[in-house]
Computed example of a mutant assay.
Amino acid sequence: MRVDKYLWCIRYFKTRSIATKACKEGKIRVNGDIIKPSREIYPTDKITVRKNQVNYELVVLDTPKSRLGAKLVDIYRKDVTPKETLQKLDLLKYSKDYYRKRGSGRPTKKDRRDIDDWFEEPSDKDSEE
């Protein structure tokens, strides 16, 4: 089975065209080698998928005949991604939740206080010291 089709079947990518594009961009490695989307996959191959700034590592156990339900994915692959990598993903998620994009919506109370402090005239006490 082709590597792009395999990654689509085990639900790492939503569509085959996205999986093919990832292969062409060099985000997919099989046994450490950057590969083309047409590369055949066999059991015991080790695949590294770079997705959302995280390198997922998986071992091929078998090749499915078609796209699988989410519960059946573990029959065809073994996830050997290190725990440190998954913790990095959690940190990225929390860091994105904390900050809001500049210009998106009204300023928060904290933003408003910072703006007021910025434009506030220096007091007489500050100028005498």
Rank of each mutant, 00 (worst) to 15 (best):
residue 54 V to K: 05
residue 16 R to P: 10
residue 81 T to L: 11
residue 86 L to W: 07
residue 32 G to R: 00
residue 98 Y to A: 14
residue 71 K to Y: 07
residue 119 F to E: 07
residue 14 K to F: 14
residue 116 D to G: 06
residue 72 L to T: 09
residue 109 K to I: 10
residue 53 Q to K: 14
residue 102 R to F: 14
residue 113 R to S: 13
residue 28 I to D: 00
residue 33 D to A: 02
residue 67 R to F: 04
residue 113 R to P: 11
residue 122 P to I: 15
residue 88 K to T: 01
residue 80 V to P: 02
residue 4 D to C: 06
residue 37 P to L: 10
residue 105 G to M: 05
residue 30 V to G: 00
residue 15 T to E: 03
residue 63 T to E: 08
residue 41 I to Y: 00
residue 72 L to G: 06
residue 58 L to H: 04
residue 51 K to P: 13
residue 96 K to Y: 07
residue 107 P to K: 13
residue 103 G to Y: 04
residue 36 K to Q: 10
residue 127 S to Q: 10
residue 115 I to T: 06
residue 24 K to W: 02
residue 110 K to P: 14
residue 25 E to C: 04
residue 124 D to F: 13
residue 84 E to R: 11
residue 72 L to F: 10
residue 104 S to E: 15
residue 3 V to M: 03
residue 76 Y to E: 12
residue 36 K to W: 02
residue 82 P to F: 06
residue 27 K to P: 08
residue 31 N to G: 01
residue 77 R to G: 01
residue 57 E to N: 02
residue 61 L to P: 02
residue 42 Y to P: 00
residue 20 T to H: 06
residue 43 P to Q: 09
residue 68 L to F: 00
residue 41 I to P: 01
residue 126 D to E: 15
residue 55 N to D: 09
residue 14 K to N: 05
residue 5 K to V: 07
residue 60 V to F: 01
residue 45 D to V: 00
residue 80 V to K: 03
residue 109 K to D: 09
residue 114 D to H: 12
residue 26 G to P: 00
residue 85 T to I: 15
residue 42 Y to G: 01
residue 105 G to C: 05
residue 110 K to A: 15
residue 5 K to C: 03
residue 24 K to G: 10
residue 33 D to N: 02
residue 41 I to S: 03
residue 58 L to I: 14
residue 85 T to A: 14
residue 8 W to E: 00
residue 43 P to E: 08
